[in-house]
Structures are given as C-alpha cells and as structure tokens.
Design a protein around this nucleic acid. Structure first.
Length: 225
DNA sequence: AAGGGAGTCAACCGCGTTGTA
DNA sequence: CTACAACGCGGTTGACTCCCT
C-alpha cells in the first residue's frame, strides 16, 4: 500500500516515510505546548498518524530547538573522534557532549568518514516516483528552518564555544559523570583497556593522522591514575 | 548532455532497558 | 513478581545530490 508520497503505511495504518510540513507543524505545536515525552500520546493527541517512535525521532533529530545544521566543525570532528576512541559507538553519549548535534548526525558522520563503505548496493532499478516531491519539500523546509535557526544560532554558538574552549573542564565533567558507573566508563579506564587501541575502532585511518587531530590530552587533567 | 558511482542524510527497524499497572 | 507498554539506542536502509567520465 503506498502513501500519498509513494511511501508505505505500517500494518497499523500509520504513515511512514518523509515528514510533511504540516506534520512538522503539528508536532512542533504539540511538543512546545506539552513538552517532550509520552510520544505515543503525542502521536495520537497531536493528530499525527505516526508511531510514537517516529514522532520522537523526528523531534530529536530535526525539530528540537537549538539543533545545529550544516557541516560539523573541525573542533566537533575532533571531539567525535576522541570520544569515539574512548567510548566506541555510544553515539548518544557522544552527542550529549556536542550541543546541537544529534546521535544520528554523529553516527552518519562516523560511518561516512571512518567506516569502510559497503559494496554498492544502490542503483538497483528502484523507482524514483517520490524523489522530486521529497526533494522540493526538503528544500522548502530547510529554507524555513534556516530563518529560525539563524536567530537561534548565536545563542547556541555561545554555548558550544564555551564548551569547546574549555576542553579540560568538559573532559573532567565527562569523567566525573561516568566514572562512577562501570558500564559508562570509557574503555580506556576499564580494566582491560590495555588491549584496546584506536586502531580497534578505526579501520582505515592512519594512526598518525588520527591522533594528530585530537584534543591535546596533555591539557586534560585526569585524577584517577 | 547523459549516465553511473560515491557520498550524505533522513528515517525505519530491532532489541534492550526502564517504568508502571 | 510478572507482564506489558513506552522509551532510547545502535544498526541499517533508501533516496537525493554531487561529481566524474
């Protein structure tokens, strides 16, 4: 069964696929009035024919105020590389250290830049019926959001800048937050950390280049050892 | 100019965790 | 204590854009 835009519906009759401007508006309205959480309720109460899961994802990755759009800055890239070497694929944890960036964004960035791309499984004669509509919609949305984002950008940048400038403080915060919980401890602080090297996480990046872009760890004071 | 491949990003899926009745 | 629902996370997929031939 195909939806209005060529995408399908779930077996429960819920919409799937790209969000429309109207859906975004409804979700935005509802969340700004009632707050985040209770996503299945949001889906019903806001008049969205979507799963709660889909609503949450859309909000977190796209509609949430303060999200940064566009390319990751070199500083952000360094932080991602560094934290990934510590925590592995803990995208949500890494995202928490980068205000305005989402786990999905970071995950995509990592896969794009550091993981071996799979053999091309694309271009398999798939129909492209909804392509143009989807593209137009995306552009329209980006334009709308760009206006909003610009207004918020300054405020967010101030936060980001202060977080990045003081790497030491940020690192200490991270360590304090996680060291007490064994499962949250970065791999380098776990008992078997000596067996883990950056190359275990990064397949096709030269180690020199890898370390070259990182934070200066000498600046980071860690009290544990 | 057209076609194809690679890169990028939004969204879905499956599963584990947590909260609640 | 158990069952179920909701939530959150990581992995994967599908589609669009860009660039090269």
């Amino acid at each position: 069964m195909a939806g209005v835009d060529g995408w399908g519906m779930t077996d429960k009759g819920l919409r799937k696929g790209p969000w429309t401007a109207e859906e975004d508006r409804l979700l935005n309205e509802y969340v700004s009035m009632h707050g985040e959480g209770r996503w299945s309720c949001v889906a019903k109460c806001a008049g969205l024919n979507r799963s709660g899961k889909s609503c949450r994802l859309r909000w977190v990755n796209y509609l949430k105020p303060g999200l940064k759009k566009g390319q990751l800055t070199p500083q952000e890239q360094s932080i991602i590389t560094e934290l990934h070497s510590l925590w592995g694929n803990k995208w949500s944890m890494i995202a928490r250290c980068l205000p305005g960036r989402t786990d999905n964004e970071i995950k995509n960035y990592w896969r794009t830049h550091f993981k071996i791309t799979k053999p091309n499984r694309r271009r398999q004669d798939k129909p492209r019926t909804s392509a143009l509509r989807r593209q137009q919609f995306r552009r329209q949305q980006q334009q709308q959001q760009q206006d909003q984002q610009e207004a918020k950008q300054k405020q967010v940048e101030e936060t980001v800048t202060s977080a990045q400038v003081d790497n030491k403080q940020a690192m200490e915060l991270l360590m304090c937050t996680n060291l007490e919980d064994e499962q949250c401890r970065p791999v380098m602080f776990q008992d078997d950390h000596e067996n883990i090297r950056p190359s275990d996480f990064i397949d096709d990046v030269e180690e020199g280049a890898y370390w070259g872009g990182l934070w200066n760890m000498d600046d980071v004071h860690i009290d544990h050892a």
